[in-house]
Design a protein around this nucleic acid. Sequence first.
DNA 1: GGCATGCCTTGATTTGAATCAATGCCAGAT
DNA 2: ATCTGGCATTGATTCAAATCAAGGCATGCC
Lengths: 240, 240
Amino acid sequence: MDEMTYEGVAPEELPLFRGLPVSRRTDLMRHAMVHSVSSGTVLFEQGEVPNFQLIVLAGSAQLFGRSAGGREVLIEAVRAPDLVIPAAVLTGAPYLMQARVPEPSRFLLIHAAAFRAAVEEEPLLAHAAIGSLAAQFRRMVRQIKNLKLRNSTERVGCYLLALSKRQGTPDRAVLPFEKTLIASELGITRESFSRALSSLGKSGIRVDGQTIEILDAARVAAACAPDPLIDGTDGEGFAV
Amino acid sequence: MDEMTYEGVAPEELPLFRGLPVSRRTDLMRHAMVHSVSSGTVLFEQGEVPNFQLIVLAGSAQLFGRSAGGREVLIEAVRAPDLVIPAAVLTGAPYLMQARVPEPSRFLLIHAAAFRAAVEEEPLLAHAAIGSLAAQFRRMVRQIKNLKLRNSTERVGCYLLALSKRQGTPDRAVLPFEKTLIASELGITRESFSRALSSLGKSGIRVDGQTIEILDAARVAAACAPDPLIDGTDGEGFAV
DNA sequence: GGCATGCCTTGATTTGAATCAATGCCAGAT
DNA sequence: ATCTGGCATTGATTCAAATCAAGGCATGCC
């Protein structure tokens, strides 16, 4: 299929809404709309107070942290289906990150007040919000451990191993976005990322554009000490 | 008062339980117990599956991340009254951090399954859990921004400014624990922390043991570029 | 007292990563 | 086909922070 721009779920099919009383769902949908946005769109800026709970129906959003000096780093990518920073929306606190869209994507926007009210009253929604919040919290903890306990080469190596595992291809990994972005996600410069990749060459890694061949995963693991409590994912305990 | 070892709230007075149907509260308390623990106690290890939701009634808990190599860093301190990593308990996923107690403290322990069930069914509890999760998520995001966007001296300077503000003493800050620990929280070595403090001397800071005099907060701020979206706290939106 | 022990500071040195700079390599536009 | 702009690599160099090493200053203990 070409024009696969808009894959993903229809709003009514969201696991988030599964099992919800029909009245509740229609009520929520009255305070909601679907937005299709093109690559590059800024969804919100850091410092803004949330107006909507955004839900990724298709595509993804990238969350950036920016310093006063204008330097910008990728903190997280949110993929469909998930909530975009429920922590800010549910507390009504200003966003700590900017959200941008790296590919054509579709979002469900629910007015913040309506979403908060619905979560307060509806245990199933609360459950979904808790699942999303918990998963996001744990991703942040993993990232902090990664930053504090590993050097840059280890971070890169473990990133590749985790990626290949997630993609189901033990002998290679395809980078999901530009190397510069990945570098900032890993807390290093693009140059250091490039050097880390080439220094992993002696552990059995070959770089070909966005594709990284992993010739000897065991050797990479020996060099980088992957750890399920840092690199793992929690699986789909709570779908949204 | 001497013997102020056990300050803090009584379990029945927890905001968490405020407004809860009495039946629910007694039901929860049947699955709960209060534990008073001495300094140094390990509450749980990273990798363990949670048995209890721990709630800090008095004192605090420190959360550490450990690498395979045995290196250990402070990730967060949880102070009364708050939940200790609801993210792990509510998802049933293994702890990503070890919890230790740095001072005599008192905890309420609620059996994990009972706590999960209660949160599922009781909107008020769900609300409290969401508030705690959201606040903790945001603290992690701030920490990541701090690590990725600042150098070590900036981190130390902003830490001191935030501390003095939190303590209500604009002209000084009292370090809440050993410098080695704070250093690991800030992602640097104790030596670098010490050097950062002395290099902040030329911005108007004097070190006297655990007390740091801030002679000229404006100059420190100029050197370290504090940012409410990194150093701020969200206030007590959701008390637990 | 004297002497461990733990925590911190300071200095010397090394090292990992950032920065600076140049070049290469596309994909898309003309 | 040639130009162009964005991204990536590579090398040279600088710089920040870690590491290594020594000493200081408490506190508690015998």
